[in-house]
Write a protein that binds this DNA or RNA. Structure first.
Lengths: 375, 375
DNA sequence: CTGAAAGCGCTTACAG
DNA sequence: CTGAAAGCGCTTACAG
C-alpha cells in the first residue's frame, strides 16, 4: 500500500490547472491548436513527477470501454479434464498464448472465464457471467448451441465463436475445418497415386467432434476421386483397449497393401514409425506416412515424420484479431474465418499438391504442437 | 446493445425507494432488524424484474476491490516458446486451470498478464503493468529476481510468487522443491537396496533450473547415505544430439549393473521401457524404473510405469489459496508453501518408504500430466 | 429503518 | 485554449 496512487486532481493541482485540462492533454484530445507550450510542459512534468497513471476502473466506468477482452472455456472440471468436449491443457495454453500475443500488440488485456456447468448438465440453468470488465468475448466451444452463449448475445457483447463448426447465428466465427482439411490431405495422397490409405484414429473414448469431421473428410476425398472407401482401412480401435501394434499388424497383412498411413494422434507418431520399420516397411517408398498434429521431435526420427500442424496458436490469434477488428471497425456482417492445417513436409511424405501455403506463423519452425518438452 | 442495462436507480425508482436502500438491501447491509418486509419485497421484485446486476466497474471504483486476481507469466514469445525459462503450454494450461478452480469456488475471476521483456532483455526497462483491475497477483517466475516484480511490490499489491526457489524477500511463495523431492526419491531407492541408480535427463538444451535442482537432489541423497556418486550414471546427453537408445545401451553395459533408473522426461517413458525390455532387463526385478512427470498412458504399459506427479495443477491451486487467504485474512507473515511431488505407484517401482501421502487432488486418478490425448 | 449527500477518479459537452 | 459542472453507477457515513 506504499504511497498513495496519485490522481488526476493531484496532477492538476501541482501543475496549476484544472483536471479537465490535464485529462485532455494526457489523452491528446485538443486536436486543434496545441495548448500553450508552458501549460503542456507543466502538466507533463507534474504527471511524470507524480508517476501519474490513470485509474482504469474510473476510465472504464465513464468510457464503457476497458480494453480488456474475455475468453471463455468449456470445462467439465479443471481437475478432471478427460472429457473430449473439454479443451485439453495444451490447447488451453496455446489458445491463450495466441490470443495474448495479438492482444498485447494492440494494447488489450485478457480476462479468463470458465464455464463448467454447460457440458456437465446440459439442461442446468446457465449461470450468467458478469461481463462488465470486458469489451468483447472469445467464446471457445467445439459444439456451439445457442443456449450456451445466449447470455452473451443478450448482453449485446461483441463476441467471436471459436469452435469446430460454423453456427448459423450471426456471430463471428473462427473454426477448425477438420473435414475440409482432411479431405484435402487425403485428396492429395490419392492424386499422387496412393490407393490404400489407412487412417488410425487411436482415440481414447468416443471420437470427439474433430475426429468425426476428419472421418467425413476421409470419405469425401475418396468420393471425390470415385474410389470406394474400404472400411477396414479406417481403424477405430481405442488406444486403451487395443495395443497400437495389433492395429498396425492388422493393417500390414492387408492385400492390396496399404500404401499410405495417416496417424491420428501426435503421441503415437514415433512408435508407429518404429513398428513399420521393424516390420520391413520402407517409408515413404512403400508407404507414405503423415501424422495429424505436429511435434518437434518428428525432426529427429529417421525418416523424419511429415505432419499437419493443427494451428491452435493461430486459432487464438485469428479469434483475437477478428474480435478486435469488429470492436474497432464497427458492426459488419458476421465473419467466418477458417483456420487451416499446415503441412510440414519432412521425409515420410511429400505432397505434390501444395495443400496450404505456410503463412508467417506456420513457417516459424519453433512453433510446436503435441508433446511438450518439459513439464 | 439490446436493451440497456438497468441500474440501481432504475430499481429504486420502480420500488419507490432510494438507491441507498436498494444498495444496502442487495448487499445485505442492515445486519440489525430486517427492513420492513414490504420494502424488501418490493425492492427484490423490482431488481428481479429489471434483471438488475450491479455494475462491477462502479463497485470496484468505490470499493477499491474487484474480486479479480491476476496471474503473470514470463514468456520469451508466445510464438517461440522454446526457452526453458518459459512456461510450456501444458504447464500454462494446468496452472491456469488450477488457479481457476479455486478462484471459481471462492467467487473470484482471473486476469492474465504476460511479461515478455524481462527474460529477453534482462536490463531492458521493465514495462509497468496497470493493476487497477486486480486485487492481487500470482507471479509465475522460476527464477525470481527483485527487479522483475519491483513494480508489483511498489504498487503494494498483494502477491504470491510461484516458482522454483524461495526468494528472500517477504513475499508469499509457492515453490516446487525439485531438489528436496529428488533427494527423497533417490533416498528411498537407496534405502531399499538400490546402489546403481541411473538418471537420464534427456534435456533439450541447457538444463533448466528445475533439472539442475534435481541433479543436486540426486547427489545429496547419495551423500546422505554415504555413497559416492558415479558420474557415469548421470546421463546429460541432449535429446536432440544423442539417440535415447545410445544413452540406454551405454547404461546397460555398466558393471556393477544399473539397478534403478530415473527417467527425466515423461515423453520418453514408454520408449525407454521398451528398450529395456527388448534388452532383456527385467523390470522391476533387475531394475526399478520411475518417470519424473506422470502420464495416464503409464497405466497401459506392461509393466505399468511408476511415476512422480509434479503437481502443476496443485501449484496453481496452492497459489490461489494462499493469495486469497492473504487477501481476506489480512497481513500475516510471508508464507512459504512447498508443493510436493506425488509418487504414483504402479508396477515398475514400489517404494517402501512412503514419499508423500497422496492428497485429495493427487488421488484423483484422472488428473494427468505429460502427454496430451488430443490436440 | 430510510433518505440526502458526498465521493470513488475519470471524461465530456458546454461555456467562457 | 481552459474552466466549471455534470455524470458514469455505485457505496457509505451522516442525519433524520
Amino acid at each position: 500500500m506504499s504511497r498513495k496512487r496519485s490522481t488526476l486532481r493531484d496532477v492538476a493541482q501541482k501543475a496549476g490547472v484544472t483536471v479537465s485540462t490535464v485529462s485532455r492533454l494526457l489523452n491528446n484530445k485538443p486536436l486543434t491548436v496545441p495548448v500553450t507550450d508552458t501549460t503542456r510542459q507543466r502538466v507533463l512534468e507534474a504527471a511524470k513527477s507524480l508517476e501519474y497513471t490513470p485509474n482504469r476502473l474510473a476510465r472504464g466506468l465513464v468510457a464503457a470501454k476497458t480494453h480488456i477482452l474475455g475468453m471463455s472455456f468449456p470445462i467439465t472440471s479443471p481437475l478432471n479434464r478427460i472429457d473430449h468436449r473439454d479443451v485439453t491443457y495444451i490447447n488451453l495454453g496455446m489458445l491463450i498464448s495466441g490470443v495474448q500475443n495479438v492482444l498485447q500488440a494492440r494494447g488489450y488485456e485478457l480476462h479468463i472465464f470458465n464455464r463448467i456447468e454447460h457440458n456437465q448438465h446440459p439442461d442446468a440453468p446457465i449461470r450468467r457471467m458478469n461481463y462488465d470488465f470486458i469489451d468483447g468475448l472469445i467464446y471457445v466451444e467445439p459444439n456451439p448451441c445457442y443456449p450456451y452463449y445466449e447470455d452473451v448475445a443478450e448482453a449485446g457483447l461483441p463476441m467471436v465463436m471459436l469452435g469446430q463448426t460454423r453456427i448459423r447465428h450471426t456471430v463471428h466465427t473462427v473454426c477448425a475445418e477438420d473435414r475440409v482439411e482432411m479431405r484435402k490431405l487425403v485428396g492429395a495422397l490419392i492424386r499422387q497415386g496412393r490407393r490404400r490409405i489407412a487412417y488410425v484414429l487411436n482415440v481414447m473414448n468416443e471420437p470427439p467432434m474433430d475426429v468425426i469431421e476428419r472421418m467425413e473428410g476421409y470419405s469425401l476425398a475418396h468420393k471425390d476421386a470415385g474410389i470406394p472407401v474400404d472400411p477396414i482401412l479406417l481403424r477405430r480401435e481405442r488406444a486403451s483397449e487395443v495395443p497400437l501394434a495389433v492395429t498396425l499388424d492388422a493393417l500390414l497383412t492387408l492385400r492390396p497393401a496399404v500404401d499410405a498411413l495417416i496417424i491420428g494422434r501426435t503421441e503415437i507418431g514415433e512408435d508407429t514409425l518404429k513398428h513399420l520399420l521393424a516390420s520391413g516397411v520402407r517409408v515413404p517408398e512403400d508407404m507414405e506416412v503423415v501424422v495429424i498434429g505436429d511435434d518437434r521431435f518428428f525432426e529427429a526420427t529417421r525418416p523424419r515424420l511429415s505432419a499437419m500442424r493443427l494451428g491452435y496458436l493461430e486459432r487464438g490469434m485469428a479469434a483475437a484479431r477478428l474480435l478486435l477488428d469488429a470492436l474497432e471497425g464497427g458492426a459488419e456482417d458476421a465473419l467466418h474465418m477458417p483456420v487451416h492445417w499446415t503441412f510440414i513436409e519432412r521425409d515420410s511424405c511429400a505432397l505434390r499438391d501444395a495443400i496450404q501455403p505456410a503463412d508467417d506463423v506456420a513457417s516459424n519452425a519453433h512453433v510446436q504442437e503435441g508433446r511438450i518438452t518439459s513439464q
